[in-house]
Nucleic acid binder design. Structure first.
Length: 424
DNA sequence: ATGCTCCTGCGAA
DNA sequence: CTAACGTTCGCAGGAGCAT
């Protein structure tokens, strides 16, 4: 059963180029939050040898030399364009799994196997024309093979022009191709496992494909065995369609500059909890506990280091921002240590379950739940109508000096008419 | 021996 | 001028505990 993996090329950079064509043909990087390090690179930047995750301050010199254009990440824009790409791709298959912001799997079972490469080209042309984003298509009998085929398509391996269909290869050609690909390119094989495999002299995809599953099970984990099966065309990882809500919700950020006082940390924690609670309500879930963490900057080795977290159980599972914030701030107070340079804080909502299934406590006030629901409904409605944080809780503060740096951000072209006009 | 919860490591984008 | 290094999610598996 063939599966396609469609992946956008240099997605964030491609989004920026769509609304600013002057960036076309030039070296462009998009930076992570806080303008920290490279998370998306144009081909020109890759050619200069700049690696994924390279810190911005360390590439400033080479950037000046080659006129690299750096941009802060603009998730409002990328999220919006992602939704357009996914909606377009949904037309090409009855079953779609949106795997990340820039890629999805499509079930191509039932299509004529001989025409799949052609179909892949049609997908590419349609997305490019309708949305403006370039994509590559990989096709294989399992999700792992589809991912690998996509890698080949991106690299232009085995004569592929943006589309690679492993179904077209006979076993001889496939072996040759797999022998030329380092094992670390396989989905599920990261740094550690690549190291471990190298010790066993398993270095290419072909080496891994032919390795003994029993031996790998003993040396590694069941996950790697599944990967090997998938490389051999035996499906072990199902296509998952949307529906199952998340099991945990994390919101955390590094600060724009370090924070020492409890006040500043409290504001940040209240703010992240507000964001997390919004996601929670969007999922239709409630949380049983909230974890709060703070930490100093491990890269500043001269600073005293400190990293603590605490789980605060809620008396009753809830999706109420005010209750979650109260608990989070109690937790924060208990782990706060004065006179340190904190670099980051965050919250994690845990023990999530469906809202309908709330366990009630013996001493419930029956009027309380509807009151809370009504308040959250009003809060969400106003913010949806008037914009994020039009109405928010006082504990988040107003100055937010800890807010992250985004000095190089482009406009919100697709979600704010004034910013679009400004860009013209 | 079995089943849980909590925590860490790993991988992914 | 200096210092400046991301975020969010799931899964596996071991430790620790209770039964």
């Amino acid at each position: 059963m063939p599966i396609a993996l469609v992946d956008c090329n240099n997605f964030y950079v491609s989004c920026e180029r769509m609304f600013n064509p002057k960036l076309e043909g030039k070296p462009v990087v998009v930076l992570s939050n806080n303008d920290g390090c490279a998370v998306s690179r144009s081909n020109e930047v890759k050619a200069l040898g700049i690696k994924m995750g390279e810190p911005w301050f360390r590439m400033k010199d080479i950037s000046k030399q080659h006129g690299i254009i750096a941009l802060s990440s603009n998730y409002t824009l990328y999220g919006d364009l992602s939704a357009r790409v996914m909606a377009t791709l949904a037309n090409f298959s009855p079953q779609q799994e949106i795997y990340s912001i820039d890629e999805c799997f499509l079930d191509l079972g039932g299509f004529d196997p001989k025409t799949l490469a052609e179909y892949g080209q049609k997908i590419r042309k349609t997305v490019k024309r309708n949305v403006g984003i370039p994509v590559c298509v990989g096709i294989g009998d399992t999700k792992t093979l589809a991912k690998l085929a996509n890698h080949c398509a991106k690299k232009g391996l085995s004569g592929s022009d943006g589309v690679c269909d492993f179904g077209q290869l006979n076993s001889q050609r496939r072996s040759e191709l797999f022998s030329s690909i380092p094992v670390g390119e396989v989905w599920g094989v990261g740094r550690k496992i690549t190291e471990g495999l190298a010790k066993l002299n398993i270095k290419t995809v072909e080496d891994l494909r032919r390795a003994s599953p029993e031996y790998l099970r003993q040396q590694f984990s069941i996950v790697l065995v599944k990967t090997v099966n998938e490389l051999n065309g035996i499906p072990c990882i199902e296509l998952e369609e949307a529906g199952t809500p998340r099991q945990q919700i994390m919101v955390s950020r590094s600060f724009g500059s370090s924070v020492s006082a409890l006040d500043g940390l409290s504001e940040s924690v209240a703010h992240y909890t507000t964001r997390a609670a919004e996601k929670l309500r969007r999922d239709g879930s409630i949380a049983a506990s909230i974890c709060v963490f703070i930490r100093t900057n491990p890269f500043r080795e001269k600073d005293e280091q400190y990293s603590r977290s605490i789980v605060v159980p809620l008396l009753q599972s809830t999706d109420d921002t005010t209750k979650l914030v109260k608990s989070a701030l109690i937790g924060l107070k208990s782990i706060y240590k004065p006179a340190l340079n904190y670099a980051k804080s965050g919250v994690l909502l845990m023990g999530l379950h469906e809202k309908g299934s709330a366990q009630r406590t013996l001493f419930d006030d029956p009027a309380e739940q509807p009151r809370s629901d009504k308040l959250m409904y009003v809060l969400d409605s106003i913010n949806q109508k008037m914009g994020k944080d039009s109405l928010t809780i006082g504990a988040s503060g107003t100055k937010q000096r800890w807010a992250m740096r985004r000095e190089l951000k482009s406009q919100n072209y697709t979600s704010d008419i004034n910013e679009l006009l400004e860009a013209w």
